[in-house]
């Protein structure tokens, strides 16, 4: 996805099968970016703030997670001068109006509901991938 294929995609999700699904779908779509995984908001923040890690080109964020959920994570990231420009796409089970509202209040780049069918899941991932392949991003 995007640029040099070297910037990682950060996947923040606590469910193993969902993580596997994203991984498999991206592979199927020939997305070659390295993948980084975090099981909750805290882990994701730690990854983003670790200077050894390259800044991800996109974050795929689940909302319902232990310790620090997606909204709490967004609140910190979008108020962080260094991190706030990283596009975050919410990928969640929740269809709650409140979750959508809060996510967009924190400037998410998209809000996708995980489909129950794997095939449809791949379609969602294809759309995300295509969009972020075309979209321009600032260097820093």
């Amino acid at each position: 996805m995007h640029l040099d294929n070297l910037s990682p995609i950060l996947i923040v999700d606590d469910d193993k099968v969902d993580t596997m699904t994203i991984k498999r779908a991206l592979k199927e779509l020939n997305v070659r970016n390295p993948l980084a995984f975090a099981g909750n908001g805290e882990e994701a923040l730690a990854y983003l703030r670790d200077e050894n890690n390259r800044k991800p080109c996109i974050v795929l964020l689940d909302l319902n997670m232990p310790k620090m959920n997606g909204i709490e994570f967004l609140k910190i990231v979008k108020n962080d001068e260094y991190l706030k420009r990283i596009p975050v796409v919410v990928l969640t089970t929740s269809q709650e109006e409140q979750d959508k509202l809060e996510s967009f209040n924190f400037g998410v780049a998209g809000y996708m509901v995980k489909p129950v069918d794997y095939i449809q899941f791949v379609e969602v991932m294809r759309t995300i991938s295509m969009y972020w392949t075309i979209s321009e991003l600032p260097y820093e």
Binding site: D15, V17, N64, T93, V116, I119
Partner: peptide, 20 residues
């Protein structure tokens, strides 16, 4: 209800993969 969805989707996806 909501929390049931994630494991159910997991099962559905795993079945999909078994079939595929």
């Amino acid at each position: 209800a909501h929390d049931l969805k994630t494991p159910l989707r997991g099962i559905a996806t795993l079945v999909d993969w078994l079939q595929m």
